[in-house]
Amino acid sequence: MFSFCEDPSTLETARWFACYLTNGVHLQFYQSFLKVLLLLAITAPVALAFGFLGAMAARSRLLPLSLLGKSYIAVVRGVPDIAFFLFFVIALDQAFEYVRHRVLCPDWTDPIRQGSDFIVCAQAKLPLGTAPQWVHETYAFVIAVITFSIVFGAFAANVLYGGMRAVPRAQLETAEAYGMSPRQTFWRVLVPQMWVFALPGLSNLWMVLIKATPLLFLLGIQDIVYWARELGGTKTPNFTAYPHGDWRMWYFLALLIFYLAMTKVSETLLERLMKRLTHGQATTGGEAQRRAAA
């Protein structure tokens, strides 16, 4: 990166670190932080949408639909989430390949599960065996996003379901008295009011989502945990211009600080959001704001 980096073994400490921290692999390490932020940026809205659908299903008057929504919420309780992550990565991959196999190779007669093997025809492989490396990486990332969204969608569904039920009954009855249809009541009265009740739960969920991102590592993504382990390991002069001992501890300390900073920033922002949402609501918080203003 810098012009003086040509022969690192002659450099004094400060310059050595300046070169070391800007070499190629470190730039990849910094990019993996973007991967984490990208995951958060995609997963949060998608999970919220999943959660909204789940909550809508759970309070539906159709019994099968409500059972579906409730079991979606309930299944994620009681089981460690990491098990879901490990499960969905394989299960989703196999489901996609199975469907493609059925569509693309209808005249294939061999069974797909042969003993310990899962065999689909070559055209149905995902991604195709001939695909370039970035396709493989993107595919793995997409699977990870879907997995995160399913798991966190269930949590969000639970929170939103609670939020919907917390909206005072009188508000809905008033809407009905004005002659609104159930759909109008839902969209015009219930949905705008439920957020203030759901926000404490959702902000908690956001914190949990941030803290779940290192699990990307378990899904086979080259994320920050992967790079911290890679870069921190002992390096001998034979393989690198920057030999050093076992520095993994320091790399993980850096990750720890990164996550603490993320938590702190989110806390502050969510606090502000809560203040805005409380404005004009029929809750103690809203009442306190009104009194303070008056």
């Binding site: 803290k211 779940a212 699990l215 720890l256 996550y259």
Partner: peptide, 15 residues
């Protein structure tokens, strides 16, 4: 509470 348990495990192990 502000950092992932996963990272805490890693950090502690290498420490």
């Amino acid at each position: 509470r502000g950092s992932p348990l996963f990272i805490q495990f890693f950090f502690a192990y290498f420490l």
